[in-house]
């Protein structure tokens, strides 16, 4: 991993099957690994201030005391069941504290983006993918007729 720290990986291993329920099962190691790799690449593509903000959010969710207080997960994320992860996410989402809502929004958005940025995952939406571009060819699809301005 380039930017994900070991504690981030532990957190994301627990949260990914809850965020991507129906796509990534808790025992689906290959699916989780692929999502984490994609997440790590996504982090590299963000800016330094954004990465710093994401790491602060991860710190809140990983550090024992704040983890327990904010998510109800009092033991390590590696012990969390799918139900524990779902309950943690719901607490962050429904909290009356804006900062926790913001952490929920950032972490879920990044996991979801990381998953759908993998082209074969994007195909599960019914998206056939973009047209094929062939270097050096003239446009094969004729430009549609346009009115003059």
């Amino acid at each position: 991993m380039k930017l994900l720290r070991p504690e981030d990986v532990e957190l994301l291993r627990a949260l990914t099957p809850a965020v991507m329920k129906g796509k990534v099962a808790p025992g689906d190691t290959a699916g989780i690994d692929q999502t984490l790799q994609s997440f790590d690449t996504l982090m590299v593509d963000l800016s330094e201030p954004v990465v710093a903000g994401v790491q602060q959010a991860f710190d809140v969710l990983s550090f024992g005391l704040t983890r327990g207080l904010t998510t109800g997960q009092w033991s390590a994320w590696s012990n969390a069941s799918l139900e524990d992860a779902e309950s943690a996410l719901a607490r962050l989402r429904d909290s009356g504290i804006g900062l926790l809502n913001a952490i929920y929004a950032a972490v879920t958005r990044l996991i979801i983006s990381a998953w759908y940025l993998v082209p074969e995952n994007a195909a599960t939406t019914g998206y056939p993918g973009p047209p094929k571009k062939v270097a050096g060819l003239v446009p094969a699809a004729a430009p549609a007729k346009e009115a003059t301005p």
Binding site: A18, V19, M20, K21, G22, K23, E86, L89, R93, A105, T108, R109, I111, I112, S113, W115, Y116, L117, A122, T124, T125, G126, Y127
Partner: peptide, 26 residues
């Protein structure tokens, strides 16, 4: 609605997002 872009709109997680996204073409 390219998929990764669209997926960010819902703010949902779990089946709320994956079942919605399964019907992105509709």
């Amino acid at each position: 609605l390219q998929p990764a872009f669209a997926a960010g709109f819902y703010g949902a997680a779990g089946e709320q997002i994956t079942e919605s996204m399964d019907k992105l073409n509709h």
